[in-house]
Amino acid sequence: MNRACFSRLIDEHYRPLLAYARVLTTGNPQQAKEIVQDAFIAAWQAIGRFDVSRDFGVWLRGIVRNKWREQARRHSREVSLDEAELEALESSIRNWCGEEGQSVLLEKLADCRGKLPEALAQ
């Protein structure tokens, strides 16, 4: 694993991951950004523990969730989503992102947006 490889992984994953973090932090972009950056650094440091047969995105989201809980704890904020909602979020992001990478994801989302009610499709 070298830096170049990891950079590719970052490019592939950072957008969905940021979106995910923003849902978690209920629209606090600055906090979401910090969490994702921390998560990537944690991932880089712990890359040896990543099980290559698993999906990298799933692993990263796990790290993001941990960072998010940690931050909430540190700031004595209550975590704003319960486990069931987290699971629903995880399963929908997994459905959309799967292992197909970002480009496919965005195409699919563009499709989805077409189907959304006006109010949401901004």
């Binding site: 979106a19 923003r22 849902v23 563009a110």
Partner: peptide, 22 residues
């Protein structure tokens, strides 16, 4: 929550410093 996720995923640009992030 799914709708919020779609919303976030489609946000363009992500935020002011998109390129800064990386």
């Amino acid at each position: 929550i799914q709708e919020r996720l779609i919303d976030e995923l489609l946000r363009e640009p992500l935020f002011d410093g998109d390129s800064e992030f990386v």
